[in-house]
Protein backbone atom coordinates (compact mmCIF):
# COMPACT_ATOMS: atom_id res chain seq x y z
CA UNK A 1 0.00 0.00 0.00
CA UNK A 2 3.06 2.20 -0.14
CA UNK A 3 2.10 5.37 -1.94
CA UNK A 4 4.00 6.53 -4.93
CA UNK A 5 4.54 10.13 -5.78
CA UNK A 6 1.51 10.99 -7.97
CA UNK A 7 3.89 12.91 -10.17
CA UNK A 8 5.47 9.62 -11.24
CA UNK A 9 2.40 9.17 -13.34
CA UNK A 10 0.81 5.92 -12.31
CA UNK A 11 -1.36 5.18 -9.31
CA UNK A 12 -1.29 1.55 -8.15
CA UNK A 13 -4.45 -0.50 -8.12
CA UNK A 14 -4.87 -1.86 -4.64
CA UNK A 15 -6.36 -5.22 -3.80
CA UNK A 16 -9.43 -5.64 -1.65
CA UNK A 17 -8.79 -8.42 0.83
CA UNK A 18 -11.83 -10.61 1.30
CA UNK A 19 -12.72 -13.92 2.87
CA UNK A 20 -12.51 -17.26 1.05
CA UNK A 21 -15.63 -19.40 1.51
CA UNK A 22 -16.87 -22.23 -0.68
CA UNK A 23 -14.45 -21.34 -3.46
CA UNK A 24 -15.65 -17.72 -3.66
CA UNK A 25 -14.31 -14.49 -2.21
CA UNK A 26 -17.15 -12.81 -0.29
CA UNK A 27 -16.80 -9.84 2.04
CA UNK A 28 -17.76 -10.52 5.62
CA UNK A 29 -21.53 -10.52 6.09
CA UNK A 30 -20.95 -8.21 9.06
CA UNK A 31 -19.59 -5.40 6.92
CA UNK A 32 -16.76 -4.89 9.41
CA UNK A 33 -13.07 -4.51 8.69
CA UNK A 34 -9.93 -3.90 10.72
CA UNK A 35 -6.71 -2.25 9.73
CA UNK A 36 -3.80 -4.55 9.10
CA UNK A 37 -0.34 -3.06 9.38
CA UNK A 38 3.08 -4.16 8.30
CA UNK A 39 5.54 -5.15 10.99
CA UNK A 40 6.95 -1.62 10.85
CA UNK A 41 3.54 -0.09 11.51
CA UNK A 42 2.76 0.97 7.93
CA UNK A 43 -0.96 0.36 7.26
CA UNK A 44 -1.33 -2.30 4.56
CA UNK A 45 -5.03 -2.96 4.08
CA UNK A 46 -8.48 -3.15 5.59
CA UNK A 47 -9.02 -6.83 6.24
CA UNK A 48 -12.42 -8.39 6.76
CA UNK A 49 -13.35 -8.84 10.40
CA UNK A 50 -15.31 -12.05 10.00
CA UNK A 51 -18.24 -12.83 12.27
CA UNK A 52 -19.88 -15.88 13.84
CA UNK A 53 -22.19 -15.98 10.84
CA UNK A 54 -19.21 -16.09 8.49
CA UNK A 55 -18.00 -19.08 10.52
CA UNK A 56 -21.42 -20.66 10.01
CA UNK A 57 -21.26 -20.10 6.23
CA UNK A 58 -17.74 -21.44 6.08
CA UNK A 59 -18.69 -24.58 8.02
CA UNK A 60 -21.64 -25.16 5.71
CA UNK A 61 -19.34 -24.89 2.68
CA UNK A 62 -16.80 -27.16 4.32
CA UNK A 63 -19.36 -29.82 5.21
CA UNK A 64 -20.68 -29.85 1.64
CA UNK A 65 -17.18 -30.35 0.29
CA UNK A 66 -16.22 -32.94 2.89
CA UNK A 67 -17.67 -36.07 1.31
CA UNK A 68 -16.16 -35.39 -2.07
CA UNK A 69 -12.72 -34.62 -0.67
CA UNK A 70 -12.68 -37.66 1.62
CA UNK A 71 -13.87 -39.79 -1.30
CA UNK A 72 -10.97 -38.89 -3.58
CA UNK A 73 -8.29 -41.50 -3.94
CA UNK A 74 -5.30 -40.86 -1.76
CA UNK A 75 -3.10 -40.44 -4.79
CA UNK A 76 -5.44 -37.84 -6.22
CA UNK A 77 -5.38 -35.83 -2.99
CA UNK A 78 -1.61 -36.03 -3.04
CA UNK A 79 -1.47 -34.71 -6.57
CA UNK A 80 -3.79 -31.85 -5.69
CA UNK A 81 -1.63 -30.81 -2.73
CA UNK A 82 1.44 -31.00 -4.92
CA UNK A 83 -0.34 -28.78 -7.41
CA UNK A 84 -0.66 -26.13 -4.69
CA UNK A 85 3.12 -26.23 -4.35
CA UNK A 86 3.49 -25.83 -8.13
CA UNK A 87 1.27 -22.75 -8.16
CA UNK A 88 2.96 -21.22 -5.11
CA UNK A 89 6.32 -21.63 -6.82
CA UNK A 90 4.93 -19.64 -9.74
CA UNK A 91 3.83 -16.80 -7.44
CA UNK A 92 6.87 -16.99 -5.22
CA UNK A 93 7.79 -13.32 -5.61
CA UNK A 94 4.38 -12.18 -4.42
CA UNK A 95 4.49 -14.47 -1.39
CA UNK A 96 7.98 -13.28 -0.50
CA UNK A 97 6.82 -9.66 -0.64
CA UNK A 98 3.70 -10.45 1.41
CA UNK A 99 5.59 -12.36 4.07
CA UNK A 100 8.39 -9.81 4.26
CA UNK A 101 5.89 -7.03 4.84
CA UNK A 102 3.68 -8.96 7.25
CA UNK A 103 6.45 -10.40 9.37
CA UNK A 104 9.05 -7.63 8.96
CA UNK A 105 11.58 -10.02 7.46
CA UNK A 106 14.37 -9.38 4.99
CA UNK A 107 13.68 -10.61 1.49
CA UNK A 108 16.16 -13.42 2.12
CA UNK A 109 14.43 -14.66 5.27
CA UNK A 110 10.98 -14.25 3.78
CA UNK A 111 12.22 -16.20 0.76
CA UNK A 112 13.40 -19.01 3.00
CA UNK A 113 9.99 -19.16 4.69
CA UNK A 114 8.18 -19.23 1.35
CA UNK A 115 10.49 -21.90 -0.07
CA UNK A 116 9.91 -24.00 3.00
CA UNK A 117 6.16 -23.49 2.75
CA UNK A 118 6.25 -24.78 -0.84
CA UNK A 119 8.37 -27.77 0.12
CA UNK A 120 6.08 -28.47 3.04
CA UNK A 121 3.13 -28.91 0.69
CA UNK A 122 5.27 -31.39 -1.22
CA UNK A 123 6.26 -33.23 1.97
CA UNK A 124 2.67 -33.61 3.10
CA UNK A 125 1.48 -34.39 -0.44
CA UNK A 126 3.76 -37.41 -0.34
CA UNK A 127 1.97 -38.70 2.76
CA UNK A 128 -1.41 -38.98 1.03
CA UNK A 129 -0.98 -42.58 -0.08
CA UNK A 130 1.36 -43.60 2.75
CA UNK A 131 -0.28 -42.54 5.99
CA UNK A 132 -2.64 -45.53 5.94
CA UNK A 133 0.35 -47.81 5.43
CA UNK A 134 2.14 -46.37 8.42
CA UNK A 135 -0.83 -45.95 10.76
CA UNK A 136 -3.06 -48.78 9.56
CA UNK A 137 -2.52 -52.40 10.51
CA UNK A 138 -3.68 -55.92 10.07
CA UNK A 139 -4.22 -57.39 13.50
CA UNK A 140 -3.46 -61.05 14.25
CA UNK A 141 -6.41 -61.67 16.56
CA UNK A 142 -6.58 -65.06 18.29
CA UNK A 143 -9.36 -66.51 16.19
CA UNK A 144 -10.44 -67.19 12.62
CA UNK A 145 -10.96 -63.56 11.70
CA UNK A 146 -9.32 -61.20 9.31
CA UNK A 147 -9.00 -58.01 11.33
CA UNK A 148 -7.65 -54.76 10.04
CA UNK A 149 -7.55 -51.12 11.01
CA UNK A 150 -7.68 -48.25 8.56
CA UNK A 151 -7.59 -44.49 9.09
CA UNK A 152 -10.41 -42.28 7.85
CA UNK A 153 -10.66 -38.50 7.85
CA UNK A 154 -12.26 -36.85 10.86
CA UNK A 155 -14.31 -34.44 8.75
CA UNK A 156 -14.47 -30.68 9.25
CA UNK A 157 -11.50 -29.21 11.08
CA UNK A 158 -11.41 -25.70 12.50
CA UNK A 159 -7.87 -24.39 12.30
CA UNK A 160 -6.88 -21.43 14.45
CA UNK A 161 -3.70 -20.60 12.63
CA UNK A 162 -0.37 -19.75 14.22
CA UNK A 163 -0.19 -16.04 14.97
CA UNK A 164 3.43 -15.28 14.21
CA UNK A 165 4.24 -17.30 11.12
CA UNK A 166 1.66 -15.98 8.70
CA UNK A 167 2.26 -18.35 5.79
CA UNK A 168 4.64 -21.16 6.75
CA UNK A 169 2.87 -21.73 10.05
CA UNK A 170 -0.51 -21.82 8.36
CA UNK A 171 0.64 -24.20 5.61
CA UNK A 172 2.28 -26.46 8.20
CA UNK A 173 -1.05 -26.83 10.04
CA UNK A 174 -3.38 -26.85 7.03
CA UNK A 175 -1.59 -29.39 4.82
CA UNK A 176 -1.71 -32.25 7.37
CA UNK A 177 -5.46 -31.81 7.87
CA UNK A 178 -6.09 -31.80 4.12
CA UNK A 179 -3.86 -34.70 3.19
CA UNK A 180 -5.72 -37.01 5.54
CA UNK A 181 -8.98 -36.13 3.79
CA UNK A 182 -10.45 -33.60 6.20
CA UNK A 183 -11.64 -30.16 5.13
CA UNK A 184 -10.85 -26.92 6.91
CA UNK A 185 -12.24 -23.67 8.21
CA UNK A 186 -9.27 -21.46 8.97
CA UNK A 187 -9.00 -18.41 11.22
CA UNK A 188 -5.80 -16.80 9.98
CA UNK A 189 -3.18 -14.99 11.98
CA UNK A 190 -5.05 -12.00 13.35
CA UNK A 191 -2.31 -9.43 12.97
CA UNK A 192 -0.76 -10.91 9.79
CA UNK A 193 -3.66 -12.20 7.72
CA UNK A 194 -2.72 -11.05 4.23
CA UNK A 195 -0.39 -13.88 3.11
CA UNK A 196 -3.22 -16.30 3.93
CA UNK A 197 -5.49 -14.48 1.51
CA UNK A 198 -2.83 -14.70 -1.18
CA UNK A 199 -2.70 -18.42 -0.40
CA UNK A 200 -6.49 -18.50 -0.85
CA UNK A 201 -5.99 -17.07 -4.34
CA UNK A 202 -3.63 -19.93 -5.09
CA UNK A 203 -6.07 -22.48 -3.68
CA UNK A 204 -8.90 -20.98 -5.72
CA UNK A 205 -6.98 -21.48 -8.97
CA UNK A 206 -5.52 -24.85 -8.05
CA UNK A 207 -7.34 -28.18 -8.20
CA UNK A 208 -8.47 -27.96 -4.56
CA UNK A 209 -12.28 -28.06 -4.80
CA UNK A 210 -14.19 -25.07 -3.47
CA UNK A 211 -15.18 -25.49 0.17
CA UNK A 212 -12.29 -27.81 1.05
CA UNK A 213 -10.42 -24.84 2.49
CA UNK A 214 -12.27 -21.81 3.82
CA UNK A 215 -10.30 -18.86 5.13
CA UNK A 216 -11.52 -16.22 7.55
CA UNK A 217 -9.65 -13.15 8.73
CA UNK A 218 -10.60 -11.32 11.89
CA UNK A 219 -10.28 -11.30 15.65
CA UNK A 220 -9.40 -14.62 17.22
CA UNK A 221 -11.36 -13.69 20.33
CA UNK A 222 -14.48 -13.73 18.15
CA UNK A 223 -13.63 -16.54 15.74
CA UNK A 224 -11.99 -19.18 17.94
CA UNK A 225 -14.86 -19.51 20.43
CA UNK A 226 -17.39 -19.52 17.59
CA UNK A 227 -15.50 -22.32 15.86
CA UNK A 228 -15.09 -24.25 19.10
CA UNK A 229 -18.81 -24.02 19.80
CA UNK A 230 -19.98 -24.99 16.32
CA UNK A 231 -21.61 -28.41 16.39
CA UNK A 232 -20.71 -29.26 12.81
CA UNK A 233 -16.99 -28.83 13.32
CA UNK A 234 -15.48 -32.17 14.30
CA UNK A 235 -12.03 -31.14 15.43
CA UNK A 236 -10.20 -27.96 16.29
CA UNK A 237 -6.57 -27.15 15.74
CA UNK A 238 -5.89 -24.87 18.70
CA UNK A 239 -2.29 -24.03 17.83
CA UNK A 240 -2.99 -20.35 17.33
CA UNK A 241 -5.53 -19.90 20.13
CA UNK A 242 -4.27 -17.17 22.46
CA UNK A 243 -3.39 -18.51 25.91
CA UNK A 244 -6.13 -16.41 27.52
CA UNK A 245 -8.78 -18.10 25.36
CA UNK A 246 -7.58 -21.66 25.64
CA UNK A 247 -9.81 -22.85 28.45
CA UNK A 248 -12.91 -21.22 26.99
CA UNK A 249 -12.23 -22.76 23.60
CA UNK A 250 -11.61 -26.23 25.02
CA UNK A 251 -14.73 -26.07 27.19
CA UNK A 252 -16.85 -25.22 24.17
CA UNK A 253 -15.13 -27.92 22.12
CA UNK A 254 -16.15 -30.56 24.68
CA UNK A 255 -19.82 -29.94 23.97
CA UNK A 256 -19.72 -32.14 20.85
CA UNK A 257 -16.55 -33.99 21.83
CA UNK A 258 -14.33 -32.22 19.32
CA UNK A 259 -10.86 -33.55 18.92
CA UNK A 260 -8.55 -30.78 20.10
CA UNK A 261 -5.07 -30.58 18.61
CA UNK A 262 -3.08 -28.55 21.12
CA UNK A 263 0.21 -26.85 20.69
CA UNK A 264 2.83 -29.17 22.20
CA UNK A 265 3.47 -28.58 25.89
CA UNK A 266 5.93 -25.82 26.57
CA UNK A 267 5.96 -24.57 22.98
CA UNK A 268 5.33 -20.87 22.54
CA UNK A 269 3.74 -19.94 19.22
CA UNK A 270 5.98 -16.91 18.77
CA UNK A 271 9.16 -18.89 19.37
CA UNK A 272 8.36 -22.02 17.39
CA UNK A 273 10.85 -22.52 14.56
CA UNK A 274 8.73 -23.38 11.54
CA UNK A 275 11.85 -23.69 9.41
CA UNK A 276 12.91 -26.69 11.50
CA UNK A 277 11.74 -29.66 9.44
CA UNK A 278 12.07 -32.15 12.26
CA UNK A 279 9.82 -30.02 14.42
CA UNK A 280 7.25 -29.05 11.81
CA UNK A 281 6.98 -32.10 9.56
CA UNK A 282 5.15 -34.66 11.63
CA UNK A 283 2.92 -37.53 10.57
CA UNK A 284 1.19 -37.29 13.96
CA UNK A 285 -0.15 -33.93 12.83
CA UNK A 286 -1.95 -35.85 10.09
CA UNK A 287 -3.08 -38.46 12.60
CA UNK A 288 -4.61 -35.74 14.77
CA UNK A 289 -7.40 -35.45 12.22
CA UNK A 290 -7.94 -39.13 11.47
CA UNK A 291 -10.34 -41.68 12.93
CA UNK A 292 -9.28 -45.32 13.14
CA UNK A 293 -11.73 -47.89 11.85
CA UNK A 294 -11.32 -51.57 12.70
CA UNK A 295 -13.01 -54.27 10.65
CA UNK A 296 -13.64 -57.92 11.63
CA UNK A 297 -14.36 -60.54 9.01
CA UNK A 298 -14.62 -64.31 9.55
CA UNK A 299 -12.32 -66.74 7.77
CA UNK A 300 -13.77 -70.13 6.89
CA UNK A 301 -15.00 -72.31 4.07
Amino acid sequence: MADRDPAEGRIEVWKTYKLYIGGAFPRTESGRTYVVSAADGTPLANACRASRKDVRDAVRAARSASGGWAGRTAMNRGQILYRVAELMEGRRAQFVEDVAQAEGLSAGKAGAAVDRAIDRWVWYAGWADKIAQVLGSSNPVAGPYFNFTIPEPTGVVGIVAPETSSLLGLVSRLAPALVGGSVAVVATSEARPLPAITLAEVLATSDVPGGVVNILTGLKAELAPAMAAHDDIDAIDAWGVPEALRREVELAAAENVKRVARRPKGVADARFDWLDDRAAERPEWIAAFLEMKTVWHPIGV
Partner: peptide, 16 residues
Protein backbone atom coordinates in the same frame (compact mmCIF):
# COMPACT_ATOMS: atom_id res chain seq x y z
CA UNK B 1 2.10 -43.30 -10.40
CA UNK B 2 5.07 -45.40 -9.29
CA UNK B 3 7.40 -42.44 -9.57
CA UNK B 4 4.84 -40.35 -7.76
CA UNK B 5 4.46 -42.81 -4.90
CA UNK B 6 8.16 -43.40 -4.35
CA UNK B 7 8.95 -39.70 -4.70
CA UNK B 8 7.04 -39.21 -1.48
CA UNK B 9 9.04 -41.92 0.28
CA UNK B 10 12.42 -40.40 -0.55
CA UNK B 11 12.32 -38.05 2.45
CA UNK B 12 10.22 -40.31 4.71
CA UNK B 13 12.36 -43.44 4.94
CA UNK B 14 12.59 -43.08 8.72
CA UNK B 15 8.86 -43.79 8.88
CA UNK B 16 9.10 -46.85 6.67
Amino acid sequence: AHFWYYAGWADKLEYA
